[in-house]
Design a protein around this nucleic acid. Structure first.
Length: 301
DNA sequence: CCCCAGGGCCATA
DNA sequence: TATGGCCATGGG
């Protein structure tokens, strides 16, 4: 970390960095970034090696400080692209807000979460593993599992009295001893799914570019759900959080069910038709509505 | 002790 | 196609 470089990104309209920070800081035991009152820092993997970035707001700009041994022009471009992707800063969400404002029941969400963007998981392997880890268990426990995994086999950087972890690589996860994962309290199913996904990445059966090159959304869903452990919920979750597809609905999601039940007085587990009727006024913005509905449940789901 | 968590797979009918 | 059991643990 011998060199330092400041990178400025202009704030888009309808973007709130405070909302971004409050989403990242939901009281869960997150291990892949470090928060302060007004900044977030994380380890970043770049083509020319790893570094640490710290992001804060300075007036009308996002200021990203990159710490790295030797900083290249390519590093700077990649960091800028990473942050824009992570916080979904390139998207014009005016059309979404227009739809929200005229909705009878949901219009207050504009003001409750003003400038809140769909925060992503740019790393596809991490997004898929996180979908597996989070299935069927409460998020508090899911974050504990993730931390155990990351601390065991994620690469780390020590910088200014802090440890910054990378999410494990497919190879390092694949090579983890089964018993170690059992001791961490992963279920046998989750362990098998994680191995399967790791192996798929190692063999290049799945990658972000392979998904991006699929002809249709349906083809992407099929490619994802071909993987054992990835069902319809996980596929939509990953397309939303990693591929930045804004037209996804996480069918089967307990949090989504709960939000719709509370706001629309449906069954506790609303039918697909009931869910679709909520989303029908938000064509092309389903992922954003999905994300905002999650937010209505509060910091802890 | 019960039920359910940001599900999905498999067996059965 | 639909339904029920199973997974592992923790919180309510």
């Amino acid at each position: 970390m011998k060199e330092v470089q400041k990178i400025k990104i202009a704030l888009p309209v309808l973007f709130s960095f405070q909302q971004t920070l409050s989403f990242l800081d939901r009281g869960f035991d997150e291990c892949l970034y470090v928060l302060t009152n007004n900044s977030v820092a994380k380890r970043i993997e770049l083509s020319d090696g790893e570094g640490v970035i710290r992001i804060s707001q300075v007036k009308k700009w996002l200021e990203v400080i990159l710490y790295k041994d030797k900083i290249t022009r390519r590093d700077v471009n990649e960091v800028r692209a990473f942050v824009i992707d992570w916080f979904d800063m390139d998207r014009d969400i005016k059309p979404f807000y227009a739809l929200l404002k005229k909705h009878k029941i949901l219009n207050h969400l504009v003001y409750d979460y003003f400038g809140s963007r769909l925060i992503g998981i740019p790393n596809l392997f991490e997004a898929l593993c996180w979908a597996i880890i989070g299935q069927q268990i409460n998020l508090t426990f899911a974050y504990k599992l993730k931390r155990a995994l990351v601390e065991e086999c994620g690469e780390k950087t020590r910088f200014e009295d802090q440890v910054y972890y990378a999410f494990p690589s497919p190879k390092s996860l694949f090579n983890m001893d089964r018993d170690v994962l059992v001791k961490m309290k992963f279920s046998r199913q989750k362990i098998m799914y994680l191995y399967t996904i790791s192996n798929a990445f190692i063999n290049n059966d799945i990658s972000k570019s392979l998904l991006q090159n699929c002809k249709s959304k349906q083809a992407r869903i099929e490619k994802l759900t071909d993987i054992k452990g990835i069902g319809i919920w996980s596929a939509n979750y990953v397309l939303m959080k990693c591929l930045r597809d804004v037209s996804c609905i996480t069918y089967g999601d307990s949090g989504l069910n709960k939000a719709i039940y509370i706001l629309f007085a449906t069954d506790k587990k609303p039918s697909k038709e009931a869910i679709d009727s909520v989303f029908k006024d938000f064509k092309g913005w389903e992922s954003y509505l999905n994300f905002y509905l999650w937010k209505t449940l509060g910091s802890r789901l």
